[in-house]
């Protein structure tokens, strides 16, 4: 067993690109689910339209990366409107079904042969973000203790965490404002807010859009970091990971998504690489190396169940603030 390698990988991934992507996705979910109580199970779709908005504008339409980012954001706003208009007046679980269905629709369209010239089919869109890496100030990789990044990874990770900090600050300021108090009141008792003369529908819609646009930056980071947009990356599992991250860290807490994402990815990669190390060194014989990747999903499923049952407030949360229930 090579423990130093296991720890190195776990620490690197714990603050790496995936942790950034899921922290951002969970920040968006936090606004929707944590603060407003909206069951958005299509967060993957927001990341997908952003990534494809960016990729298609650069690779297909030949626009610059900055225009691409704007198009991605516009696509996320449009998606939020499309999802919200039919469902936000209905009971909470309808939004869940519609958002998860919409995410699947988009994934199927993105990977279809019919739209292959635009979206690239199941191969997706690749190598379009060279403009971003041309701005890279890091000339060499960075290695501090167990943490090890290449120059390009370092650049996107730094940009990503700055983005996370900015979005978290934004959430912090929003939730202190009168707007944030209305949002939280809607989560606690919709009818009470309505009787005070507030338009619950409009506030929910704003929360859905803001959460979606925040989450869509996760799609930008994913697309640029991997230099590749794969339709199947944006499957329902991505949304479930984001929920696990959010609930682990603590919903309705500004730092919840960040703590959740770092802890989640550290644990996941640690268990993953410890297991595959144990398998390849012969310490564990009843699992094959191809099956190690499946175990992480057992952990994901179990974590979601156990957290929701025993500690729905997560690491940082306050149980009193999270009395979520169907309305």
């Amino acid at each position: 067993m090579d423990w130093s390698n296991v720890f190195s990988q776990a620490f690197t991934q714990g603050i790496g690109v995936q942790a950034v992507i899921f922290a951002i996705a969970a920040i968006g979910l936090n606004v929707q689910f944590g603060y407003t109580g909206l069951l958005n199970f299509g967060q993957a779709a927001f990341l997908a339209v952003a990534a494809y908005g960016l990729g298609v504008s650069i690779a297909f339409a030949g626009l610059s990366i900055w225009v691409g980012l704007l198009i991605g954001i516009a696509a996320a706003v449009l998606l939020a409107l499309l999802l919200g208009i039919p469902t936000l007046r209905l009971r909470a679980d309808y939004l869940a079904i519609v958002t998860i269905a919409a995410a699947e629709i988009l994934r199927l369209v993105f990977r279809s042969v019919t739209f292959n010239p635009v979206f690239g089919g199941s191969d997706g869109i690749n190598r379009f973000a060279d403009d971003f890496y041309a701005l890279n100030p890091f000339s060499a990789g960075v290695k501090i203790g167990p943490i090890d990044f290449s120059a390009n990874d370092m650049w996107i990770v730094v940009v990503g965490w700055v983005l996370v900090a900015f979005l978290s600050l934004l959430v912090f300021l929003m939730m202190r404002s009168p707007w944030g108090r209305v949002i939280k009141a809607i989560r606690e008792d919709e009818d009470a807010v309505r009787s005070l003369g507030k338009s619950v529908y409009a506030y929910k819609m704003q929360a859905l859009i803001i959460g979606g646009v925040m989450g869509c930056f996760g799609g930008f980071v994913a697309a640029i970091a991997l230099q590749s947009i794969q339709p199947d990356y944006y499957g329902t599992e991505l949304t479930f990971y984001a929920y696990a991250v959010l609930i682990l860290g603590g919903a309705a807490r500004v730092l919840g998504p960040i703590v959740g994402s770092v802890v989640f990815w550290f644990m996941l990669v640690f268990i993953d690489s410890a297991l595959s190390n144990a398998v390849s060194s012969g310490a564990i014989t009843f699992i094959q190396s191809t099956q190690v990747g499946q175990i992480r999903y057992w952990i994901l499923g179990l974590a979601l169940m156990l957290l929701m049952i025993y500690r729905p407030q997560g690491i940082l949360g306050d149980k009193k603030e999270l009395s979520l229930d169907a309305r």
């Binding site: 999903y297 499923g301 179990l302 979601l304 169940m305 929701m308």
Partner: peptide, 22 residues
């Protein structure tokens, strides 16, 4: 709560699915 149970059922679904795969 019902919403919590919904999330629990998602977790159970993932767990069962990957036990099947395994």
């Amino acid at each position: 709560g019902l919403i919590a149970m919904l999330v629990v059922s998602i977790g159970l679904g993932i767990l069962l699915r990957y036990i099947y795969l395994f």
